[in-house]
Design a protein around this nucleic acid. Structure first.
Length: 298
DNA sequence: GATTCGTGGCA
DNA sequence: TTGCCAAGAAT
């Protein structure tokens, strides 16, 4: 089943991918039938740019401590930052805390099932709103993350793409590839994402295990490598990000206020260190106290 | 559209 | 060893 351009139609991919998912899906706690929308939401925040293996322990501890949005909402934001541990991008912890408060204030403490209401929450963008609506509430949305983007690009357009955030064109392609009926669309969303995570991977795709290899435009084209401009590799060593991480690690480990002198010991360059600390304060991740002391925000 | 924002595992 | 990559959002 091919369209005018010689690429397979999306409909031809649905059944084999859904069958593959039924047989190969990972068992993950946020996918359990009784997980609930809050569990899905917590997992989605944590999984933004952080691998599943590192999310699992933090996720379990988080839901044990804060089983409902209101449980988190009544805590100081600094507790969320502390519990975030080393997942990275700690502003996500702050946003999840703010989102929990918004859920209590605007939605009676229950994660909303409306896509627009989800999108209005702090830290919830196009992807996360669609993911919660689809995974937790079974709705029909294009859930376009880096996995889905890669799967559709290869299978339907036949090109390898660099790992960047999905574009408007990727979004349109995903919408056009969505099954018509709601429950099938919801299963397709999680199944196509799982295929990207386990088989159609970025570095070394396991095409031998792929349920749609016989229809994949990229495979049929000889698996051509990405030929566009090279991506700028993000260095980490010596950056402000690393400095911020060091400072925040000291504050997470402390129970209360920390003297600036203690923070100073965590990064050698004074100019960069102070810039990083100012940035953390500006982001609301650190609260300045009197007498040159700092702590996680209360 | 391009940047900024953590952290760690792995080929 | 080092660059790439991991369920993005906000600006």
């Amino acid at each position: 089943m091919l369209d005018q351009s010689g690429s397979p139609t999306a409909e031809a991919l649905h059944a084999p991918v859904l069958r593959w998912y039924d047989a190969n899906a990972r068992v993950l706690p946020w996918r359990e039938p009784d997980a609930g929308a809050w569990a899905v939401m917590v997992s989605e925040f944590m999984l933004q740019q952080t691998p599943v293996s590192r999310v699992l322990p933090a996720y379990e501890a988080w839901l044990e401590r804060w089983p409902k949005p209101v449980d988190l909402a009544v805590e100081p934001p600094g507790e969320a930052v502390r519990a975030w541990d080393r997942l990275g991008y700690p502003r996500r912890a702050l946003r999840l805390h703010a989102a929990a408060q918004a859920i209590v204030e605007r939605h009676g403490g229950d994660v909303p099932d409306d896509h627009a209401a989800l999108l209005a929450l702090p830290g919830v963008g196009t992807y996360t709103a669609a993911a919660i609506a689809s995974f937790a509430f079974g709705q029909r949305h294009a859930v376009v993350d880096t996995n889905v983007r890669r799967v559709l690009a290869r299978a339907l357009t036949g090109v390898a793409q660099p790992t960047i955030s999905p574009t408007a064109a990727d979004q349109r392609l995903a919408v056009s590839a969505l099954p018509a009926d709601e429950p099938t669309a919801a299963r397709w969303a999680v199944a196509s994402m799982e295929l990207g995570a386990l088989v159609c991977t970025a570095r070394t795709p396991r095409c031998g295990d792929c349920p749609i290899r016989s229809r994949c435009a990229w495979v049929l084209a000889g698996s051509p490598p990405y030929d566009g401009p090279p991506r700028r590799g993000q260095t980490y060593e010596g950056t402000d990000r690393q400095a911020r991480g060091r400072l925040l690690a000291v504050l997470r480990a402390a129970s209360g206020a920390v003297p600036k002198k203690t923070l100073d010991a965590s990064w050698p360059d004074a100019t960069q260190r102070d810039r990083a600390l100012d940035g953390l304060v500006a982001d609301g991740l650190v609260e300045p106290l009197g007498r040159n002391r700092y702590r996680l925000p209360s």
